[in-house]
């Protein structure tokens, strides 16, 4: 059986592309890394792939606002293709800056033409970029393909603008795929368990189909057991908590 085909797109300032590629490779996919210009110039065909990934980083320096310029390019230069890609039943994953891009381009949650976006990702309440490990709970009622069968995970965040905010009527409870918790799984543990002040401790959301998933934390930085910050205390597992996200996606497109 042929491998799942993944396209990881990078833009000027993308910097977690290497880990996204590695994560999907570990999950058994065939991964292509392409520059956004290749997509804009149609040198790279989106429809050759089953999974489209926007990794973390500081696209265009995050000048103006995080992910904004890349979001506009996505929307204005190949927005139609993007929507067709999704409506065809393929998967889209946005991590950190990629999540910001999905939200600000109106892909997740979907903003219809002429509508104004109602949610956004904005400055952390702490006013700072912070790199720390967080516990995530998985919403069992969410249809998210990527988190199927998972209950929780321990993964790092590294961002300054990760606060999910706005009018929560734009989404429903089932769109909340992952949320911040404390070590024991309690959802309202406050800062720093919720590292940015996101409303309802939202760490990541998906669309109603569960095929578009965006999150601020970095599951691709916890693929190997030795990436866990406390492996010297707890013992090193072979694989990290983030790997199932990528395995789920690969499994799904292979129809297993």
């Amino acid at each position: 059986m042929s491998k799942a085909k993944v396209l990881v797109v990078r833009a000027p300032g993308t910097n977690r592309d290497g880990e996204a590629v590695f994560a999907f490779e570990q999950a058994g996919a065939e991964v292509t890394l392409a520059h956004v210009n290749q997509l804009i110039r149609r040198e790279c065909n989106l429809f050759d792939y089953q999974i489209f990934v926007i990794p973390g980083g500081f696209s265009y320096g995050d000048d103006i606002a995080s992910g904004k310029v890349l979001a506009n390019e996505l929307k204005l230069k190949f927005g139609k293709d993007m929507l067709k890609f999704v409506d065809d039943g393929r998967l889209v994953l946005g991590i950190c800056n990629g999540f910001q891009v999905l939200v600000k381009s109106g892909i997740l949650p979907r903003v219809q033409k002429g509508e104004t976006p109602r949610v956004t990702l904005t400055n952390n309440d702490s006013g700072k970029f912070e790199c720390r490990w967080v516990y995530l709970g998985v919403n069992q009622k969410s249809p998210c393909i990527f988190t199927k069968g998972m209950e929780n995970m321990y993964v790092p965040v590294a961002h300054g603008e990760g606060k999910f905010a706005g009018d929560l009527k734009a989404i429903t409870e089932k769109n909340i795929a992952v949320y911040y918790t404390d070590e024991k799984g309690n959802r309202d543990a406050g800062y720093p368990c919720n590292p940015n002040g996101s409303v309802k401790n939202i760490a990541g959301i998906c669309d109603d189909s569960g095929r578009i998933f965006g999150l601020m934390p970095h599951p691709e930085d916890h693929i190997l057991g030795t990436q866990h910050p406390q492996w010297t205390r707890l013992g090193a597992k072979k694989y990290g908590d983030g790997l199932p996200i990528f395995q789920n996606a690969v499994k799904w497109v292979k129809g297993i």
């Binding site: 977690r16 290497g18 880990e19 973390g56 700072k128 970029f129 912070e130 590294a158 910050p229 406390q230």
Partner: peptide, 22 residues
């Protein structure tokens, strides 16, 4: 230290902050 990204590239095995609560 927290305001530096010490996780990017995924290679950090012993991090600058360690211990039970990192």
């Amino acid at each position: 230290i927290r305001q530096y990204d010490h996780e990017v590239q995924g290679g950090t095995v012993i991090k600058p902050l360690v211990g039970k609560t990192n």
